[in-house]
Design a protein around this nucleic acid. Structure first.
Lengths: 122, 122
DNA sequence: CAGGATCCTACGGGATACTG
DNA sequence: CAGTATCCCGTAGGATCCTG
């Protein structure tokens, strides 16, 4: 009412909300940064990303593929080989993501300190 | 084993993982950006952030406070007035977050197109 | 090797009622 | 007004088994 902006950044369907809902899951961001250095195979990703399950890897990759962020290439061989790599669009996301990760690296120590400080203030 | 890096960005306890786990919930990022323009009252936030429940607002604010990202100020009046504002640390997070939101604004259209294109390719 | 199909649990998160 | 306390449900996501 007092904030009748032409474009409401807090509305449920704004681009940032939709992006946040996408990268809200534990694995999307992690997978994208893992693919930063080039194509990776399925099993490779499964081993590299600490803690991801086979189900979630498949699911997240499919989702990223549908979003146009990741390209899936099937090599018709036996045994099958499937490679995943970032698309141009996917790579463009690396920059803002890098900024965020950079912040984390620089400041998560302070956050950690703050959590302890609450009870240690006295 | 084959990846004995001195600092593993994919390990579960690295700073970026911890940050991602924190902003993984639906409301943290939204609240921080909402507080960008200055102090806000509890009820104000409840009305401004589209879809947040009272429970999650309280919970998220408490969490942000513990992390040292948000400062909570209680004004001893009747009726009570409580204001929340970003700390210096919290404000420093606005930049990388802004980059991410900027990306979303610029590219979420392409993502949307991609999702539809999958079935429309033929 | 890549991944589909199932089962099952933890917990994020909403709705509601109550309090200082 | 600014919370706290409960109840309850959907679903993210892990574990496991099976297939081309």
């Amino acid at each position: 009412m007092s904030t009748p902006r032409p474009y409401d950044p807090f509305a449920r369907d704004c681009p940032s909300r939709r992006l946040l809902d996408r990268i809200g899951d534990r694995w999307t961001v992690l997978l994208i940064t893992t693919l930063e250095d080039g194509p990776r195979r399925f099993s490779e990703l499964l081993r590299t990303v600490d803690g991801i399950s086979q189900k979630m890897l498949t699911q997240t990759l499919r989702s990223l593929e549908a979003d146009g962020l990741v390209l899936r290439t099937v090599h018709p061989e036996i045994p099958p080989r499937v490679e995943y790599e970032l698309t141009e669009l996917g790579r463009s996301l690396l920059e803002p993501l890098g900024a965020l990760i950079g912040w984390a690296t620089d400041h998560m120590g302070e956050v950690q300190t703050s959590r302890g400080a609450v009870s240690a203030t006295a």
